[in-house]
């Protein structure tokens, strides 16, 4: 080795070749992994979404392909989000419920993303929190893992309780607030109420629109 020093060009080229070889090898590995998992990943994503939706509306209540029967609507004043996806559940062709994701409420420290299910008769199938930034231990009890409060929406509608009592108790309504935190539950209650009002305005005609092609505006 010592007697014959390789030329710098040769060294550099060998190094480049080695590096290139491993770059190709690494890319190949990633490519293979991607090929091997792509389908499974897509399936997992679908399953995860379905699990979310099924938490609101049980699997046996509908029989259509929920994931492919949706509309993207834009009603920021009512639903809080620029775009909300509306999944339409049907059973034997008849409308069963709509599931709205996301409905956005303005909490104590930022947006709270909700998923809201509304049956065709205007009662709530269920409400869940998708994500939030509320203070741990105070506002985060809207999360079903911290407290069952959010489950209390199921079965409620704009008539039961009446519209005037769609407030937290402190404001003279029917819904519990949490000790130490009023802003968060107040925001969630208001957002759910708005979603119900939106549904009342749009009504069952939402089921008639053909499955999603374009964004449509439904205020």
């Amino acid at each position: 080795m010592n007697e014959r020093a390789p030329s710098p060009w040769r060294t550099a080229l060998t190094a480049a070749a080695v590096l290139g070889f491993f770059a190709v090898l690494g890319s190949a590995l990633v490519g293979v992994a991607y090929q091997g998992t792509a389908e499974r990943i897509a399936q997992s994503e679908r399953e995860a979404l379905l699990r979310q939706l099924n938490a609101i509306l049980a699997r046996h209540e509908y029989d259509n392909d929920l994931l492919n029967d949706y509309l993207d609507v834009s009603a920021p004043k009512r639903l809080g989000a620029e775009t909300t996806r509306v999944y339409r559940a049907r059973r034997q062709g008849k409308p069963v419920a709509l599931i709205l994701s996301p409905v956005v409420a303005q909490g104590y420290s930022g947006a709270i993303d909700l998923i809201v299910g509304i049956r065709v008769d205007g009662t709530l199938a269920g409400v869940r929190v998708l994500s939030h930034k509320e203070t741990p231990g105070l506002g985060d009890r809207i999360d079903e893992r911290k407290s069952p409060w959010i489950l209390g929406f199921s079965g409620k509608s704009l008539d039961e309780p009446p519209l005037s009592r769609w407030r937290v108790k402190r404001d003279g309504g029917d819904f519990d607030q949490f000790t130490g935190a009023t802003i968060t539950p107040r925001a969630v209650v208001a957002a759910v109420k708005e979603a119900l009002l939106w549904y009342r305005a749009q009504g069952p005609k939402l089921f008639e629109v053909p499955p999603q092609v374009e964004k449509t505006r439904h205020e």
Partner: peptide, 10 residues
């Protein structure tokens, strides 16, 4: 405050 915010703000 961080651990028991509900009690601590009551």
């Amino acid at each position: 405050l961080i651990s028991f915010p509900a009690d601590m703000t009551r």
